[in-house]
Simulated assay, not measured.
Amino acid sequence: MKFVQPIRDKRKIEAMKKVLKSESVRDYALFVLGINSGLRISDLLALSVDDVTTETGNIKERITLKENKTGKTKDFPIGTSAHKALKEYLDTSSLETTSPLFLSRKGTKAIRREQAYRILNNAARTVGIKDKIGTHTLRKTFAYHAYKSGYDLSMIQKLLNHSAPSVTLRYIGITQEEMDDVYLTLNL
């Protein structure tokens, strides 16, 4: 697996949303839910419609799932951006409640990881992102922006199920240059 980067520039995130939405509301919803949940791609692609909707067809307030990699239960609220993207997607689709949420156009299964990679990579190149981008970029983008927004590193570590803060810093791509900047700009 190649080492991929988070999308650090919020303008590039917005540009990717526009590109994805213009091509496919499904792909847009995948991207928005991914960068707002921190889920691994395997967990995103395993979601079904009934994982995110109530019996009456409304978007749930929370998603509860068992992580494929860890086997741990993850329960988190659906934020405003993800809620809007999911609603728009589901309002324009004719998916059954038991269907995969991100259904392939070719059948009855979810899109595959490789297709998700192509979708994200093409959108990234279209908006001029030159960093290595992959499906894991969604999770890293979530963590990077949580960190940059001032959320405690130990909280982000817990959300990602990492073993140590150093793992989380390396994971989200905090560079030595950024750490050095603390010394150079604090000047108390």
Rank of each mutant, 00 (worst) to 15 (best):
L160Y: 01
K17S: 06
T53Y: 08
D181G: 14
T98F: 13
I59H: 08
Y89N: 04
E67H: 06
S24I: 07
Y89L: 03
A46W: 07
E178C: 10
K148I: 09
K87P: 05
T97C: 11
I7E: 01
S24N: 09
S99N: 11
T135Q: 03
G173C: 08
S149F: 10
I35R: 00
I35E: 03
L153I: 13
A116F: 06
K66I: 13
A46F: 07
L169G: 01
A146I: 12
A15K: 08
T64R: 14
A85G: 02
L39R: 06
T108C: 11
G57D: 06
L159K: 07
T137H: 03
A123D: 01
E55F: 10
L159W: 11
F76C: 02
I133Y: 01
H145E: 01
E177N: 13
R139E: 07
R113P: 10
K2G: 15
G79E: 08
K106E: 15
L65C: 05
E23D: 13
G79M: 06
T53F: 11
L101H: 04
I78H: 00
L33F: 10
L90C: 09
A82T: 08
L86N: 01
H162N: 05
Y144F: 11
L45Q: 05
I133W: 00
I119W: 02
R170N: 15
S149T: 09
M155A: 15
G173T: 05
F76K: 01
K109G: 09
K84T: 12
N68G: 15
G107T: 03
Y144E: 02
N122S: 14
A15I: 04
R26D: 00
Y171G: 05
L188E: 13
G128R: 02
A46Q: 10
D131P: 06
Q5Y: 13
R26I: 00
M179K: 13
P77R: 10
Q5I: 09
N187C: 06
K69C: 06
